[in-house]
Amino acid sequence: MDKRLKVSSRTVAAAVMLVLMAACSDNSDQASVNGTTVPSTPTAPSTPTEGAPPGAEVLGTVRTDEPLTVTVLARDTANDPERWQFTVRSMTCGKPLDSAVMAYAAESVGSPTPTPTPEAGKQFCVVAMDALNVGKSEAVWNADNTVSLNVGDTRYTQSQQDSAYASDYAQYFSSKGQSGPTFGLNPGSRGPVHGVFQIPTGQQPTSIWITSGTAITTIDGVQPGYLVLLK
């Protein structure tokens, strides 16, 4: 009788162990399946600094609609630096430039102008930002050589023609009573600023780099700045 009880106990223990092992195996398999079948849609750069120029100090990272404060570093303003609060409001790719802006630009020169078209294989991307002068004196700022639109670690800046289109936006909004930093803003004043970029067709930007220098790269080397992660 005692021998039968001992054998029975061993049998029960073995059965319990088999059940536990089977359960662990099932959970492991399910986790493996979940890890390979759940779709992945990254909404941010794969690394915290992806999109920043190599060697640049990343002073901060924000997202669309989150403000960031930039102190523009320059030798001639070291004692009274310009300070801006920027907020990226929108980024539009793959569409023609604003027809009202282009019509105003044509009217201002008094003659029809060709419809803007991007370079072959590329698309326009327009970044709309809000700028607030939080410094102590009037200051001027625009996105030319100070902003890059990034697809992963590939950075796109405004060409000379893109810069002219961005100027058209500034003049149009100024005519509507919304003067921006392109023409100067006093302390406490805010206004819109636009950047026009061209990136390959079919690609989507992942971030924006905004330098805290007078240009992304100066004679002193690559300047520090901020990353704006796009939604």
Rank of each mutant, 00 (worst) to 15 (best):
G191P: 02
V127T: 06
D153L: 06
K176A: 04
G152N: 09
A78I: 12
V62M: 12
I216D: 00
K231C: 05
R75D: 15
P42I: 08
T146C: 05
F173S: 04
P224K: 00
V16A: 12
E107M: 13
V109T: 15
E57Y: 06
K231R: 14
Y226R: 01
L97A: 08
S108R: 14
Q223G: 00
T64D: 00
Y172M: 06
A23L: 15
T211F: 01
R75W: 09
V147K: 00
F183K: 07
V134Q: 02
M17R: 10
G213W: 01
T201S: 15
D153W: 04
S25K: 07
S28Y: 12
T201D: 13
A128W: 04
N133H: 07
N27D: 15
G188R: 06
V88W: 04
L18G: 10
F183D: 09
P118W: 06
S179C: 03
S108M: 12
P112N: 07
T71R: 05
Q160V: 13
N145F: 10
S28L: 12
T206I: 03
T69M: 07
P67E: 09
K95I: 07
D26L: 15
F183I: 01
L132Y: 04
S8I: 08
A15S: 12
M21L: 15
F124W: 09
T115A: 14
T113M: 15
V228Q: 02
D65Y: 11
S148F: 02
Q123H: 05
S25E: 11
R89I: 08
S148L: 03
E82I: 12
G191M: 02
S99M: 10
P224E: 03
S28M: 12
M91C: 11
A14L: 13
F173P: 00
D65M: 13
V101Y: 08
D76F: 10
L230D: 01
A166R: 02
F124E: 05
G202M: 09
S108C: 06
L97V: 09
E82A: 14
G121S: 08
V140N: 08
W209T: 00
A143S: 08
T201K: 15
R155I: 03
E107V: 08
T49N: 14
V7H: 03
T146V: 05
A164Y: 10
S167E: 12
V70D: 00
G60N: 04
D65E: 11
V228R: 02
T115E: 12
S148V: 02
A52I: 03
A103W: 05
P112W: 05
P224W: 02
R83L: 06
T211I: 03
T41M: 11
L59G: 04
D98M: 11
T77V: 08
V228H: 03
A23M: 14
R190S: 15
S9Q: 10
A44G: 02
C125P: 05
P67C: 09
G188A: 07
A120D: 13
Q198S: 13
V228P: 02
Q203Y: 10
G195V: 00
N27A: 14
K231S: 13
D65K: 11
W141K: 04
Q171P: 00
T71S: 09
S28A: 13
